[in-house]
Design a protein around this nucleic acid. Structure first.
Lengths: 359, 359
DNA sequence: TCCGCTTATGAGAACGTTATCACCAGGTGA
DNA sequence: TCACCTGGTGATAACGTTCTCATAAGCGGA
């Protein structure tokens, strides 16, 4: 099956020799370009089959300048939002003949930086990423300046000339908050997940100039929360805001802390599904009944949200569509690099189940 | 920042010119091999920085024959088993300086075939895959023969000279079954998920020669189930075996069907977490209480298993470790292609929660 | 002074494709 | 007959690296 000594793989040259033609003709026959007579076409194809010839995509990319590969840099594949979006991305990429190079940053800027560098060196034609923090703005900006098509997923970054796709977080969060307010809740806590460093800036200016905080999603959700609260004439309370990390146990601890305040909140909004899980766990641990003692709203309609106890009221994001849209936007920009960047904010839908009830 | 006309990227040649040295010296300075005087090293690095030089990994791979890339072909990223394993894979790959090309087959043999072809053409150094069915055995076999390192994840294939990593499905399933039997259950149903075509072969020879059925995991689990049943002197009943597909709603329908038999099972084992979710949904729909009316055991300890209602008794797989092990095995084989293939069967642990109770 | 060894450098080949150009035969129109 | 196109073909450059080899300079020892 194999031929060439070094790599053990047959090359066009091998095929050409066996078929008795030049490499140029063999390449034309195999690549389906130029003009080849039916007879030689047939001969070359037979030779290729006999040798088990597989074209070397690297060599092809070298000369064409096209890798037909996109890079995906995600924060956490184990989060329902990300693997849902990833599914949308891989599906559309494949349908357009693109492959996907995946990197998981685990919210670590250093990993993100390395991952992006590696992908650039591999000459991916475009990048879908959700940047972990604001530090990398300059770096990303110069990357975009150098012509790399980039789509921001889930998170957007102020002043970055890149497409972005994500939820309309502000309105979605406002909807959820309004729902709780209508049920009579006044003391509402939020588990933002956001990095602990962000907590200070979240609390201090009381989310006044949210857009300045950075890139992640939670400031927008916090802003929506604040919008709804203020619209109802309720002043959000600092001690009800928590930002203790994205992991389940961190959310569990954060919720515990909130619920053990002298005057605990009567409702909690968790900013993603993992965080909601943590909150639920904390309730259970503290012997609190949901929704009798405390209401809970989550983000992301994970497949288990319906089966959990109690079935979770959530803001559903169209995760698959967000991923698919991001990928389509990227492929479009690859074809048409001059297009002005645009930002797509998908509508979330509030789904009421049994974890929310009147106070 | 950029220089070269065509791709807009600076090359070694550009750097060399700017530094006033030959490409060879520039390459040596940048690549950190050979010997370079401190002075020129410094000059070259400065030039590279000024031009924003990024090495072209494609060109490097062409000449070195190494892509430092592994391909991962999964069935369904949205399944907790797979994204858990994927996480283990990407983490270990990164720690060894490898990148990951991801493909999702959605259990479609055609997709799988195309994905593998694409990855081979991209000259990945190895492949981690869970083959969808037995048809591709010959194809995989010739791929292995041609020297491609391959590790089978989750599923193994008889007679294939490849490493494989997965759960010790037979014993794990037997453990779970035994647990139910000890609780007094005699009428136990299994939701295998397996492709509908498999149902016939599953039922007819009553899982006699399970190893012959194919590659997927469920026959081994079915065998373990049968082991435990027969050991307890209970003859498994055909009508309690279902294989209706891997999706949640398919499992839901299958469970419904089982529970509406004249003599329904008193306990059900679902062969993965998505299927367990479907079963739970079916119970809810039919107004059946779990575990009072029917017990349920799932596979995979998804993060939500504990929070679901009722908290789910499961067979926990060490998903992350399975992925990590698969990747380590692959990287090891890349370094040492002559090593004999080995099969690792990880132990599952049965976790009793509240979805299982005496009849 | 000459030999041998090390260090620093450059010229050029190589990887496996596609792209460019030139060539030839054979047909067509004037 | 000549000019012109056109389908089929081959030689060879190009992509951006790394690798191999040759060479030159420096230096210590005999």
């Amino acid at each position: 099956m194999s031929q060439n000594g070094a790599t053990g793989m047959a090359t066009v040259l091998d095929v050409a020799k066996l078929a008795g033609v030049s490499t140029a003709t063999a390449a034309r026959a195999l690549g389906g370009y130029g003009s080849v007579s039916p007879a030689t076409l047939q001969r070359v194809q037979a030779a290729a089959a006999e040798l088990g010839y597989r074209p070397n995509a690297l060599a092809r990319s070298m000369i064409t300048g096209l890798t037909h590969t996109v890079g995906i840099v995600l924060a956490d594949i184990e989060n329902p939002f990300f693997y849902g979006a990833l599914r949308g991305i891989t599906d559309t990429a494949r349908s357009e003949g693109f492959d996907v190079l995946l990197a998981n940053t685990d919210e670590d800027p250093a990993h993100e930086h390395n991952a992006i560098a590696a992908l650039v060196e591999r000459r991916v034609e475009g990048l879908i990423l959700c940047p972990t923090d604001g530090e990398s703005r300059a770096h990303l900006s110069s990357l975009i300046e150098s012509g790399m098509p980039i789509v921001l997923l889930d998170r957007s970054m102020r002043g970055l000339k890149a497409d972005s796709v994500g939820l309309d977080n502000r309105h979605a969060a406002a909807d959820a908050t309004r729902h709780l307010i209508e049920l009579g809740h006044r003391r509402i806590g939020i588990i933002t997940g956001g990095p602990p460093e962000a907590e200070a800036s979240l609390r201090r200016p009381m989310m006044k100039s949210v857009e300045q905080i950075g890139n992640t999603t939670f400031p927008a959700r916090a802003a929506g929360f604040r919008d709804a609260m203020l619209a109802a004439g309720i002043e959000p309370r600092r001690e009800y805001l928590s930002a203790a990390g994205f992991h389940r146990h961190e959310a569990e601890a954060a919720t515990s802390e909130l619920m053990q305040l002298a005057e605990p909140p009567t409702a909690i909004i968790a900013f993603d599904s993992i965080l909601a899980l943590g909150a639920l766990l904390a309730f259970r641990q503290l012997g609190l009944r949901c929704p009798e003692d405390v209401s809970l709203v989550g983000f992301d309609d994970a497949e288990w949200a319906e089966v959990v106890s109690p079935p979770l009221s959530v803001v559903r994001q169209p995760v698959y569509d967000i991923g698919a849209k991001a990928c389509r936007l990227l492929l479009d920009r690859i074809k048409n690099p001059e297009r002005k960047p645009s930002s797509y904010r998908m509508k979330g839908t509030f789904i009421e189940r049994e974890s929310t009830a009147p106070v």
